[in-house]
Nucleic acid binder design. Structure first.
Lengths: 224, 224
DNA sequence: TATATACGGTACTGTTGAGTTTCGGATATA
DNA sequence: TATATCCGAAACTCAACAGTACCGTATATA
């Protein structure tokens, strides 16, 4: 096979994510596969990915981080590319619980209530992971889609929901372009972290809400 | 020397950008260095960078693209890392001429007048270059600063200037957060190109102006 | 025209890292 | 307890690529 410096998922196998469903079916003799190693390895892959990026990441680094043998990784994934793909696809950390979103009665209250230190920290880690993948997204739509689903879409979804609710109760005009406005914060936060290399903190997020989002929704700035 | 998969600019030399000033001083015998090769090589480096990213880019690719020998590149730059750094630092393509910015009398008119197909195309190429560098910016502040100066800051500067002018003539409120608002378009365009992998066109840019920027400045949406 | 030197091209070296193989030890099943 | 097999570790192969060395040619200067 030719050079594979970059990811090649053109003929991907089922993927670990899909295989998580079928548990047993292996009734021979001897020892079963240790299923507890999978998440440890995938977590290690995400950590290394965040620290070094895809190209800087080596299989040995991931194996060492997970205290696993390199052969163990290759017994489970056919290549580095597939390992990374599954690591992204299986990323469930920091998932937002849509059942208990804030409901303060005002859009500003809801948006501000979404700002929590653990959420910020989780977001920054996800963006560092994304930074290591950006250069590959162009050539691998599969990966781009998985990264979107796991990293960026959840945040946008929350904003869309909170804004739609504000629109339904008449707080903001029905002319507001929710689709676009829901991406303002994710976009500007990504830009700030990935390109400007500046930190994300509560002050910055609040300034985005008060200087951009709310005014764009036709709400006057009501700072405390 | 140890591994250098990634850029190491800890003890960079003067850099080609700084050397552009002194022309002659070489009065020996024989042939002088062919100065016309430099821009060709740097342009080739930018092209390859945009297509493959830093790690995917090889010196042979750049040499072939510039129709130059590999040795010629190493006669001018001590390493791949320095070549890339200078390619970014010397990037002057698509520089905005601040002397003749649009002045239509309204902020919307000025912002819309900035939308031109060549400008869009140039912006997308610059962002593709940026995509290939993102994973390195974290570890190399020098490069991050050069990339900012060459790629993102010029756009933000124009927006700041147009908005400041609108503020001075009383079109928008003095409370507007120009620093933040000037980054809305660059951020959202970057996000759309780098992460969402969607194209930039006139419609999208106008929707950003009408749905986000102008409302956030307190101006009612006045679509045609 | 004569000469020194920069050029493009190619062959080389050394290192890095993906993926494979091997092996002794651990462990769940029988 | 016996055994099949999965584990971690380490040694291995092989290809790619950064960087170097060298060669015949082109060309600007003297």
């Amino acid at each position: 096979m030719a050079a594979m410096t970059q990811l090649d998922l053109s003929e991907r196998s089922a993927g670990r994510a899909a295989q998580l469903a079928d548990a047993g079916a292996n009734h021979k003799l001897g020892r079963k596969r240790d299923l507890t190693r999978d998440p440890a390895i995938l977590d290690a892959a995400l950590e290394v990915l965040a620290e070094t990026g895809y190209d800087g990441m080596t299989i040995d680094m991931v194996a060492a981080r997970a205290k696993a043998g390199k052969a163990t990784l290759y017994r489970r994934w056919p290549s580095k590319a597939e390992l990374v793909f599954d690591a992204i696809a299986c990323m469930k950390q920091g998932e937002i619980d849509f059942a208990q979103l804030p409901d303060t009665g005002t859009l500003r209250g809801d948006l501000v209530a979404m700002i929590k230190p653990p959420s910020i920290k989780d977001g920054e880690k996800k963006l560092r992971i994304m930074a290591g993948l950006v250069s590959m997204l162009a050539k691998h739509p599969d990966l781009a889609e998985a990264a979107n689903t796991a990293i960026v879409e959840p945040r946008a979804k929350v904003n869309r929901l909170l804004m739609r609710r504000a629109m339904e109760r008449g707080e903001i005009s029905p002319d507001c372009d929710i689709e676009t406005l829901a991406l303002v914060t994710p976009s500007m936060v990504s830009y700030r972290v990935l390109i400007l290399r500046k930190p994300i903190n509560r002050e910055y997020l609040i300034s985005l809400i008060d200087s951009v989002i709310l005014p764009a929704c036709g709400l006057a700035q009501t700072r405390t």
